[in-house]
């Protein structure tokens, strides 16, 4: 253990209003949810923060609310809760699957959706699913709250729209009914507890033999989780019996910008991202 708990202070608000006030007064405080991301660099002595804002007790940030048109998840919704939710299983299976492959059970018991987003890792498992479902985020500070499209949230490697005095408070998904096409696949060398080398999530609606709607998102192939908008444009409106595969693959290569790192190579990520797209389209348009 190389972290130094004796130098660290923790602010523990009992409700959201108190949390926002503390954060406004101490914008340097690092919000701490379930700890599954932050405790790793902390224990390794690689986390510079000395002041933490403990969100764990904020009941306002928990719970999944379903209305006719939307599902709203509190930022502290745990992966385990997502995995077990019947409506999410039916209507947002990619999110459920990505929650179920985020670490193993002990991680899913503490890790939260809001924490996963705020941590900003390009390799995080749930962001591609959220992007494919067109999620929106509620960002809240003493100044008020605002909803932003999740697709706009990440602005670079570990950078985002979140202001120092803001917290992610809710995640909203529009219900698209059943019957859409859902695809999620994570590639991580190992079959469990792996950090993604490439992941791809897609949601599509096919009508009259054509792709009517398509959202395609990837992890671990750019400085942040990304929508593959160029690829989406190529495929949008195309007949599923005659998809422009080569053009789509070329567009995908332009959408992504993977690097070599400890876990894989840029070449592998490019090739496998393409393979996943082909695999996805094979599912969308079975021969």
């Amino acid at each position: 253990m190389r972290g130094q708990p004796s130098l660290c202070e923790v602010l523990t608000p009992l409700n959201l209003a108190e949390a926002l006030a503390l954060l406004a007064a101490h914008p340097e405080a690092r919000p701490l949810a379930g700890g599954t991301d932050l405790m790793v660099p902390f224990a390794a002595g690689r986390l510079p923060d000395r002041l933490f804002l403990n969100l764990w007790d904020l009941e306002e940030l928990r719970g999944i609310v379903v209305t006719d048109g939307e599902v709203t998840l509190g930022a502290l919704t745990l992966f385990r809760e997502i995995a077990a939710h019947p409506l999410l299983q039916r209507e947002f299976p990619n999110l459920v699957r990505s929650a179920m492959v985020t670490g193993a059970l002990a991680i899913q018991s503490r890790g939260s959706l809001g924490g996963n987003i705020a941590n900003g890792s390009p390799a995080a498992d749930t962001p591609p699913s959220l992007l494919a479902y067109g999620a929106e985020l509620e960002l809240t500070s003493l100044r008020g709250s605002r909803w932003v499209p999740y697709a706009d949230f990440h602005t670079g490697y570990k950078r985002s729209l979140l202001a120092p005095d803001e917290l992610i408070t809710r995640i909203r998904l529009s219900r698209m009914g059943e019957g859409g096409f859902h695809y999620f696949r994570k590639v991580g060398t190992r079959q469990a507890q792996a950090i993604a080398k490439v992941s791809l999530a897609a949601w599509a609606r096919v009508a009259d033999g054509r792709i009517q709607d398509l959202r395609l998102a990837l992890g671990s192939v750019a400085p942040m989780p990304i929508r593959a908008k160029g690829t989406e444009r190529i495929l949008q409106g195309q007949a599923i019996r005659n998809l422009p595969l080569d053009a789509a693959l070329a567009a995908l290569q332009a959408d992504i910008s993977p690097i070599d790192d400890l876990r894989s190579s840029a070449a592998f990520r490019r090739k496998v991202a393409g393979n996943l797209l082909v695999d996805m389209l094979r599912g969308l348009a079975p021969t």
Binding site: R190, I195, L262
Partner: peptide, 27 residues
């Protein structure tokens, strides 16, 4: 299959269990 020591300047660069992958029960 999977256990790869990645060397950088004579040192194991992936010296964490999250980066050097041993099999889990499902592997």
């Amino acid at each position: 299959l999977n256990e790869e020591v990645i060397w950088r300047q004579g040192s194991m660069a992936n010296h964490q269990m999250s980066n050097y992958l041993i099999a889990t029960a499902v592997d």
